[in-house]
Design a protein around this nucleic acid. Sequence first.
DNA 1: GCTATTATTTAACAATTGTTAAATGGTTTT
DNA 2: AAAACCATTTAACAATTGTTAAATAATAGC
Lengths: 211, 211
Amino acid sequence: MLILVYQHFFCDLEEKLKALDKYLNLIKFISQYVDFNEDDLKSIYTKVKLIQLKKNQIFINEGDIADKIAFTNNGYLRIYYNFDGEEITRDITPLHSFATALPSFITQKPSFEVISAITDCELITIHRDDLEFLYLNYPKWERLGRRIIEDMFVESQRRIYSFITETAETRYKKLLKQYPEMIHDVPLKYIADFLGIKLQSLSRLRKTIDW
Amino acid sequence: MLILVYQHFFCDLEEKLKALDKYLNLIKFISQYVDFNEDDLKSIYTKVKLIQLKKNQIFINEGDIADKIAFTNNGYLRIYYNFDGEEITRDITPLHSFATALPSFITQKPSFEVISAITDCELITIHRDDLEFLYLNYPKWERLGRRIIEDMFVESQRRIYSFITETAETRYKKLLKQYPEMIHDVPLKYIADFLGIKLQSLSRLRKTIDW
DNA sequence: GCTATTATTTAACAATTGTTAAATGGTTTT
DNA sequence: AAAACCATTTAACAATTGTTAAATAATAGC
């Protein structure tokens, strides 16, 4: 089905190949949720933008009004905020997932959260107005948005369970198991934050793990 | 606006008053998100069911396939699962909010989570099929669903920040501040779970708090 | 390659939270 | 009212995590 969509979607070969290269991950991700035909996909094709971020470059800054969402085509983003003079990383986006500073995106008030690139990143972005346009004009897109955020909520709840029931060591082991490549690209200080412990505690914990 | 809707919505006085009594909280909640007219509201009026739960009665059990969502018209629900022979409470629903075992509700697989009544509860419930019907036939409902779950996600992320940056004492103080009435109706063991600490630790912490 | 910078580790000690077990207090049932 | 049950507190000790400070390792810039 996915292949079929692809074949009909892009008219000429060159464009087809270029788009395949660029948007395959996004289309794969979307197709998990809603069964899109070529017209549905066309509706987004003109709306999205492909951007590159260098390591440590900021996608959404503190005080910005978040007006775009990113899909990580490549690389890792982190979401953090400044707390007591320190940066507290709340989330590290897995490859091929969505991120924005949602409180600001929803309310259109200045963001307290910052989103920046841990590694060099390639992002597929869509502007809030365009997304809103899709939501209002294509019920399927609204449905897609709802389903994606539902899954993000469930994952978030799973993480809360892990804070309640698991030790930091267990959380670390499970993170490694779930995202084994992450450890190569993401500095430990961000991972420590994500796990809810201090960098030094993570380091100590890593030393004493018996696998 | 809300009043206006009400006036047009219900034809005869008796029905109007009864419904006002029953569904006011729900309609208030919904109206925060989407501007509904009387027709929109009518679309739900025939779909929802009002049910009463006694204290400790179960709304969705482990192994059930979650096929309904609850709005807490009155009383407190808790969401927990059985972990290592113990019940781990992940969430306590505030008054006038939605709850379901979402992973099961989404996937239609047996629920690992249990939802039960902490106090006597009055719930407004809607069946999954009916909600699905509303989603598919009324874009506004899909929109409502998306916006509610977005807010739930944001709240969930806020809680993750609190696990990362705050001590249990701070989390407890903030909970008291946010939901001062909760402490009267909800046993401390559930609150301890919610905060991610043991009952005994919460008790110790309560003793040493300097306000 | 050398230097400066950043990332990670190490260690000693402090604070917080968990564990176990028992006591106290409150409610419900009989 | 007494008994049984559940909720909460208390306490001693254990385990985990935080704090501070420094050493070592790795990386980036020159």
